[in-house]
Each structure stands twice: as C-alpha cells, then as structure tokens.
Amino acid sequence: MRGADRLTCFPTIILLGLAVLAAAPPASAQDDATLEEYIEQTGEIVAWADEQVRESESTRARQVLDEARHLHLQSQQLQHGGQGRAAFATSRRARTAAQQAVKIAREALGLQERARVRLDRYADFRDQILDRAREADDDRVLRFVHESEQQALRARDQFGQGNFEMALQLIEPAEDLLGRAARLLFEGSGAERLEREVERTRTLIDRTAERIDSGTSVGVETARDLLESAREALRHAEEFQLREQPLRALHSLELARKLAGQAASATGDRIDPETVADEIARWDDRQAAVADAVDAAESPQAEAALARARHHRDRAGRLQGSGDCAQALRQIKAAFDLLNEASELTR
C-alpha cells in the first residue's frame, strides 16, 4: 500500500468504528441487564432453599442459609453501587451457599428422624437394663450404665441443638455401653455356666498345686503363696455365688485363675513330657465315661462339643510327639474344657 492511501484509509476506519459503536447497544447496559437477571434468579434460589431449610431443624443448614442471604443482599448492594464484577462473584457465592444449605437440610431430615427413633429406643433399653443392673449390684455393670447415660445426655443435648449427625454419633456408643452392660448381666445370669466356671477354676488350682508340690525350684514358696491367694479368690467367688451375685463371682474366678497361672509360672519348672502324658491319659479316662453319656443323651450340641474336645486331644498328642510340651498342654486344657461342656450338655 502506498503512503497516500494509508493517510485516507485511517480516518475512514475511525469513522467506521464510531458508526458501529453508535449502532450497537452499549456493552455495559447489556451486562447490567444480564447481571440483574442473574441476581434475581439467585434471590429465587435463596427463597427455594429457605422453604426446604425451614422444614429441617438443622442449625448448621440455617447458618449456611443465613450466609447465603447475607451474600445475596451484599451482591444487590454491589450491583447498585455499580460494581458489576464484584456483584456477580458475590451472587455466585450466595447460590453455592443456598445450594449447600439445602443439601445439609435434606440430609439432616433423615438423620433427625433416625436420631429421634434411636433416642426413644435408648430410653426404653436403658429402663430395662438399669433395673437389672441395680439388682445385680455389680460395680462394673453400673459404671457401664452410668457412662452410657452420660453419653446419651450429650447426644440429647446435641439433638436439641439441631446437630443430628453428632447426636447419632454419640448415641451409638451410648447404646454400645448399655449393650456391654446387658451382655455382662446375661453372661452372669447363667447359674450352670457359673457352676462350670467354679469347677474349672478349682481343677486348675488343684492341678497347679500338684505341680508345685512336686517342684524343686527356688520359686516354690512364692508359688504356694500365690496359690493360697488363688484359693482365697475362689472362696470369695463361691460366697458371691451363694449370695446370687454371679458377676462378682465371675470376676473373682477370673482373678483366681490368673493367680493360679502366676503360681505355675513362679515355680520356674519346665513342662515335662510326663506331665503332658499324664494329662492326656487323664483325659482319655474321663472321655470314655462322657462319651457314653453323650450317646445316651442324643444331644447334637453335646456331640459337637465332644467332637471338638477330641480334636484338641489329638492335636495335643501330635504336639507332644513333636516335643512342643507347652502347646500340647494348652491343647489338652482346651480338650478338658470342652469335655466338661459336653458333659454339662448331657444333663
């Protein structure tokens, strides 16, 4: 292009440009209209959210919705102040908040109903357990019940505050604690089970005493002392049994067994193959009598217990053969326990 042409062309371009600008609506006015429409629709979304949040009693949903309302108002003020870009950004945040409030509210409604039913159920369950716990007069059970009540109190507080998820999270362990109290009561309530446990503990103490009497190590005196404590704990257990306090009896039995175990360890005697062989022989003798009783009783549970007892006895024999006396002794103890169980089930 030549230089003169360039000179005539430049003003023409300027004029054409001005003509185009004059013909089109001003860009800011169009943006204003779009922005106004956008903000109006945000207002509708906030109102729609309000309807749903009002149904829920969730305080969190209400807090988020309050934030949405605040942002919506702020976006309107920014728009009127001529700050279009900031108004748009704020309005978009108001929409997000409104949307989030609805999600929280709808989720909360489900949680609210669940929490309400769970709290009602808890009150019933607690009523059932508390009376039984008071009757059993067992410190541990009562402590579980009390801890559970404290947890439920916090759950109720959170429910009252509209924090349903937290309420559910707190009521679960409250139920769990009550369940544990119930299980302890249930376990302690079986007179037959208690009788078996007493017998098992007495046998363990007697066996330990036999081993200690034949022991020669320096720890024998200590072992005798521990065994005396085990006998004392067993006596306490029997007293609790007579006084119909099965849980206390079970705790004392647990202690007695622990002390007997410590007494056995205190002798420092190694478990010799003869001890294991004696125990296996004793089991075989007893098994013959129990097997007859199981046959006569035709009890599937007793047969199953006897089968499991034989399984442990066989494993004890194999372990003894391979020289692992400690494991063999454990197996034969398990076999004795199951044999006792089979015997009980025939009655």
């Binding site: 988020v64 929280i104 937290m166």
Partner: peptide
C-alpha cells in the same frame, strides 16, 4: 455419690460459602 470434673470438645468442619 460421684463427683467429676471434665471437658468436652465438639468440632464440626464444613465448607461455608467459599
């Protein structure tokens, strides 16, 4: 009887409008 002293903390973390 029972006397206890304790401290409870409740934490809720969520996204609130950006």
């Amino acid at each position: 009887s029972r006397i206890s002293v304790g401290h409870d903390t409740y934490v809720q973390s969520y996204y609130l409008a950006n």
